Structures are given as structure tokens and as C-alpha cells.
Computed example of a mutant assay.
Amino acid sequence: MTGKSFSSVWLREPRKAGGPGRSREEIVKAAVELLDEEGLQGLSMRKLGAKLSAGATSVYWYVANKDELLELAYDEVWRMMTVPDPEEVGWRDSAAALAHSMRRVILRYPWAADLIGRMPALGPNAMRVANGMRKMFDLAGFRGLDIDFANSTLTAYVFGMTIPEVAWNATMGDLDDYDADKTREMVRKAAADYPDMLKRIDMGSYEDPAYMRELCFDFGLVSLLDGLERRLTT
């Protein structure tokens, strides 16, 4: 019995441009633009071909299907992430900068949140980020599988905090559109049976929800890095 074969656009040599058609770089750029405009459901070979004014044939020269096209676009998202050299800035600053960069990029390209966990991150940009993470945790003093576990812990935190934020932004939109007084009253009613919680609720202080979410993200990130650093001394 043979198992399923694993396929990826990154597991074969890229095709060189054929004839006067569009280059792979142009196709990927257009795909990202289309994803920004219409999301995952709006991407199709037909629409992309129309956007390129080249027909779907040019697209199929480089990719076999929509999933392969998404792999190319997904790797472009990883290209936007920065990994400072830990030998220059230290492993903690490098990890913190990468985590904040990952969050910003996912929020900037919310369609990518739906690809995390179901789309292989095997492209050169994703590999660059993964290698940078390996380097930072090796420099910190982690060894063997602990390097992989530290990598997974950091990315799980970023994804776990950011993907729900993407979903909130998609469903709730801009909180400035909501009546602040009515929102505060709604929260007070919901927490009426929990007086200790009411003491902690001060909706007037949340003048900039995006800023507060960033503060919350940073609080958790610092706590996570403190925990990883503690493991190195035990």
C-alpha cells in the first residue's frame, strides 16, 4: 500500500518564462493584489488572467492549480517579515521584533490568516524566517528539539493572538462606527452579575482599541520570552 504523495510548487524546479507571457513575479504580485481586494474566495485563475490581461494560460504555465498559486502568494507574505540578526541585537530583541513583524504582516494581509496551518510554508521567504528563528534560539542556548519547541511556542503565540484579531476586524470592522455610550452600557449589562469584573471595566480608557490590543500582545510576548529565558537557567 502506498501513501498519499505530497505536492508543492516549491518541490520542483520553477519554470522559466515561456514566450511573451507574464513572468512568475508579475503573476504573484497580481495574485496578492487580487487577494487584498477580494479575499481568498475572490481569487481564481480566470480573474487573475483578466487582471493580467493575459488569460489563464500564462498562469497555468507556472502553477498547476489554485493551491499552488496560493503557495506563491503565501510566501510573499513571509517575505514581508523581518528577522533582525540575533548576533547583532541579541536573541530576545530578535524574537520580539520578529513576533511584532509577524503580527503586523498578518493584520496587513488578513487573507493569509486562513492559510496558516493548512498551506505548507516551504517557500524561500518562509525558510528564511524559519532559519532566522533557529539561529536566535540556538544563540539563546536551546539545543536539539528544544529549538524546534521554542520556534513553535513563539509562532503559536503570534498566530493565537493575531488570527482572532483578524476575525474580529473582519466581522466588527472599525469600532469608531459604534456608539461609545451604548457600547459601554451593553458591557455593563453583560457583566452586571460580576461586580469584580465591573471594577475592571473602564471603557472610557479604551480610546484606541488597536493600541490596547498591541499593548496586550506585547505583555504576553514579554511574558513568553521571560518563560523561555527561565527554562535556560533551570
Rank of each mutant, 00 (worst) to 15 (best):
A112M: 01
S5T: 07
S101N: 08
G19K: 03
P110D: 03
G19M: 05
G144P: 11
L69K: 08
R103M: 05
A73R: 13
W10E: 00
S5G: 05
T162A: 14
W168P: 13
K47L: 11
Y74T: 04
V9M: 08
A113I: 01
L40G: 15
L43V: 01
V129T: 05
F142L: 08
S101K: 09
R128L: 09
T82C: 02
V63E: 02
L224C: 04
S8Q: 04
G227R: 15
I163L: 14
L70K: 04
G117A: 06
E88D: 13
V89H: 08
L145Q: 02
L175C: 11
T82A: 04
Y211E: 03
A17Q: 09
K4T: 15
R128Y: 07
T2W: 12
G90A: 04
W10R: 00
I106V: 09
L221I: 09
A130S: 03
N131T: 11
T171L: 12
P86F: 02
F159Q: 00
D36P: 03
Y211K: 11
D226M: 07
F219A: 06
V158C: 12
R184F: 08
D208T: 02
M133E: 15
D179P: 00
F219G: 08
T234M: 10
M81T: 13
E214A: 11
E207W: 15
Y211Q: 09
G204R: 02
T153F: 05
E207R: 14
A140E: 07
M80A: 10
R128P: 06
R213M: 01
A113H: 09
D208F: 05
G39I: 00
L225S: 08
